[in-house]
Each structure stands twice: as C-alpha cells, then as structure tokens.
C-alpha cells in the first residue's frame, strides 16, 4: 500500500499505462457511438429518442462511480496519512461533477419529448441533482483555504460524510417521490433490456470509465507538480 502511496512510484506505474487507457477510452467511445447511433434499434415505446440513453445512463453511472472513488481515496488518505489519496480525490472531483452535469442535461433533453417537460422531479433526477450539490460543496471547500493541505483534509472528511449520506438521500428522495407522484413516468424496463441496446451501453460505460482514469492521471500529475512547486517556493522563502 505504502509503495503506491509515494507519488513518484505511482507515476512510474501510471505514466506508461496512460496511452493504453486513453486508447481504450477513444476506441470504446467510438464503438459505443457507432453501435448506439447506427446499429441499435429504436425503442418500441420511445422511438429514436432512446439513443440519448447511451450518453445519459453511462454518465449517471460515472457520477456515482467517481464519487465512490473519491470517498475511497479520501478514506485511505485519512487513515494511512498519505497525500496521494487526497490528490486523487481532488483530481477526480471536477471530472465527476462534469459527468453529473452531462447526466442532468441529457436527462433533461430526454425528458422533454418523453415527459413533456425539461425537468421532472423524478426520484432519480432529484438524487443526481443533490449529488451535484455534494460535488460543488467538495470543490468549494477544497479551494477555500490558504493552506492547500488543510483544504484537502477538510474536503476529504466532507467526501466521507457525503458518502454516508448518499444512500440516506437516495432513500428519502425515493420515499418522497412515491408520496408525491403517481407512477406516470415512462420507465425503462431494467434488466429486460435487449442485448442490441445493452452492448452499446456497456461499451460506452467502459469508454467513460477509461476516460475518467486517463483524465484523472493527467490531473493527478498536474496536482503532484503543483505540490512540488509549492514545496520549492516554500523552501526559497525559508532560506
């Protein structure tokens, strides 16, 4: 564990992987786009509009996956006191927030022809909106301190508090939604989805995940460089 916690050790492993992950991401996204836009059949109920699903659903998965990764990185950083986890969480947050925004925007564009409104206080969309607030809070907190390590520590505690709250929020929003809304919302029949639609979805999800990891490594390298710059500057001030 501690071997990988050293930033330079980590970069020695991550840097050679970066081109491969990037290539995987580009290939999967291209294949997913081709399958999703050309090969997959239109839905018998929702027609061609179902094609929005191939960006909407993977980005929803990513919104949750990135938050979970952030929470795990924060927890390991707080428990074993190594800075790499803090930097990983910090590098991930904007990516997760972007996926969340994509999820909300594409959901809105899907909702307009399906539900007749841009925004429906549907349980899932509401939960994702709250998830976006959690990302925003994390990013606001991490930048609010003059000492960057303080911001990273505080934000990591916040990420964990948020992670504990995500299931509670999800549950309460589902509860609230069933109270206030008759089941009028068109829903995808979950596991009964046809393979010709499932494949583009899964390939797209792999592409998004690879994109996240590639971008995370890039941002992490930038964060590590920024930390070294700060160290050097602090050294100059003291000497």
């Amino acid at each position: 564990m501690h071997r990988f916690a050293n930033p330079n050790q980590f970069l020695r492993i991550a840097n050679p992987l970066l081109p491969w992950i990037s290539a995987l991401s580009v290939l999967c996204m291209a294949a997913g786009l081709y399958l999703g836009l050309f090969q997959a059949p239109p839905d018998y109920q929702q027609g061609e509009s179902v094609r929005i699903m191939y960006v909407h659903v993977p980005s929803a998965w990513m919104a949750l996956f990135v938050y979970a990764s952030m929470a795990i990185a924060s927890a390991t950083a707080l428990i074993w006191r190594h800075p790499l986890g803090f930097l990983m969480a910090k590098a991930s947050a904007p990516i997760g927030a972007c996926f969340t925004v994509i999820c909300l925007a594409t959901g809105s564009l899907w909702g307009k022809p399906m539900w007749g409104t841009w925004w429906e206080w549907d349980a899932r969309m509401t939960s994702v909106l709250i998830l976006l607030f959690l990302y925003v809070g994390y990013m606001a907190l991490i930048d609010a301190f003059d000492d960057p390590t303080r911001g990273q520590r505080a934000a990591s505690i916040l990420a964990l508090v948020g992670a504990v709250n995500v299931p509670i929020i999800k549950f309460s929003v589902d509860w609230w939604n069933t109270l206030h809304q008759p089941a009028s919302v068109v829903k995808l029949s979950g596991p009964a989805i046809h393979p010709s639609m499932l494949w583009p979805l899964l390939i797209m999800a792999v592409g998004f995940t690879a994109f996240y990891f590639a971008l995370m490594i890039v941002r992490l390298r930038s964060e590590i460089a920024a930390a070294k710059i700060r160290n050097i500057r602090l050294g100059q001030v003291h000497s």
Binding site: F133, L141, I168
Partner: peptide, 18 residues
C-alpha cells in the same frame, strides 16, 4: 476557511434534505 458563512450553507443544506 475564506467566506466560511456561505460555504457552510453549501455544504450543509444538501445534507439537510432527508
């Protein structure tokens, strides 16, 4: 933190929703 008062609201309000 800088502007702690506003920041507290952003952090805490989402957690108040349940």
């Amino acid at each position: 933190a800088r502007r702690a008062g506003v920041l507290v609201s952003i952090l805490v309000l989402p957690l108040y929703i349940p």
